[in-house]
């Protein structure tokens, strides 16, 4: 059964405190509910068996009926929901982004939902803000506050194995606190329906030790190295892509995902395509078939050579 519960976005395979408490709630509620369902169904079936009915006085009948109604209709649900709240409310409270006890600051990560990709910002990184997209690195074993919002429509931020979800609403910023127990990779996906490509708005989440995390941030403090062999591609990029995409040190477009460390990511198109050699060039040619409706215009007017060169260069972009 445990195997059936696993999966990189399974609620039943928790990797953080919040998610774990919810799973225990779930198994408890499941056991109790199953019991209730079985007992009620059995009672009904028993009542249906008909036949040998004893004649009762109407007084007796009234007493029996009242016992059922008060016992089953009032006490059973009344006690159940009281118990549920006693267990449930504290669980919810422990998930609140309350101030930490010893003056500690929770790591702050900003996540902005776009149709259909994720913008991830680390405003407090030492040496200046770090921006990436469609991937989220977080430190392990410490609380992280995610400040989320939506750039266009409402999206929802959700890392199932770490804990609950929160909506990303234009004009508001919501905060959710999550913590990962151990390093590892988790799946995440937009949970609030956000249009044509809701299915392909996935986020790669990786939890890593604090040192690795700091190193990861530090590596993004300087623009990616540029080797001379990609000059042509870079020029094509500046001409055709730069107004939408940012590459640190090259362009500052804000419409589409930041591409400064794209060579380092595991997928393209917010989870649509695995990153491997030649993947970007393939994506540039076929992205409207792979992810119909996405906001990037087609590149049919560019010749194959340019697209290949662009792909090569982008794949090399890595801190």
């Amino acid at each position: 059964m445990l195997a059936g519960c696993s999966g990189d976005r399974s609620i039943l395979d928790p990797a953080g405190q919040a998610a774990r408490e919810v799973v225990w709630l779930w198994w408890g509620m499941l056991a109790f509910s199953t019991l209730v369902l079985v007992v009620i169904t059995a009672l009904w079936l028993y009542a249906f068996r008909g036949g040998r009915r004893v004649a009762r006085s109407s007084r007796d009948e009234q007493r029996i009926a009242r016992r059922w109604i008060i016992g089953g209709g009032l006490l059973l649900p009344g006690l159940s929901i009281a118990v549920l709240l006693v267990f449930g409310v504290p669980v919810g409270q422990r998930m609140l982004p309350l101030p930490l006890v010893d003056g500690q600051q929770a790591e702050r990560i900003e996540v902005i939902g776009h149709q259909w990709w994720w913008e991830v910002r680390y405003p407090d990184a030492e040496g200046g803000e770090v921006v990436t997209s469609n991937q989220l690195m977080m430190p392990v074993g410490e609380p992280v506050d995610f400040h989320v919002t939506g750039a266009d429509v409402i999206h929802a931020f959700w890392i199932p194995r770490l804990g609950g979800k929160i909506d990303m609403i234009p004009g508001r910023t919501n905060v959710i606190r999550l913590e990962a127990d151990a390093s590892g990779m988790f799946g995440a996906q937009c949970a609030e329906f956000c249009g044509a490509q809701h299915a392909h708005m996935q986020l790669h989440v990786e939890a890593m030790a604090r040192d690795d995390f700091d190193a990861w941030l530090a590596a993004r403090q300087s623009p990616p190295e540029q080797s001379g062999s990609h000059d042509a591609a870079r020029e094509a990029f500046v001409e055709h892509c730069a107004s939408c995409h940012r590459v640190a040190g090259v362009s500052d477009g804000q419409q589409g995902p930041d591409l400064s460390d794209i060579g380092d990511r595991v997928s393209l198109g917010a989870g649509r395509l695995a990153m491997e050699e030649g993947a970007i060039a393939h994506w540039l040619r076929h992205h409207q078939q792979l992810k119909p409706g996405n906001r990037m215009p087609s590149h049919d007017h560019l010749d194959a050579e340019t697209l290949d060169a662009l792909g090569d260069w982008l794949e090399a972009l890595s801190p």
């Binding site: 919810v22 449930g88 919810g92 609950g164 979800k165 949970a191 329906f193």
Partner: peptide, 9 residues
């Protein structure tokens, strides 16, 4: 509420 946050949507 906490369970809802997980399975909502």
């Amino acid at each position: 509420v906490p369970f809802n946050w997980q399975v909502h949507d």
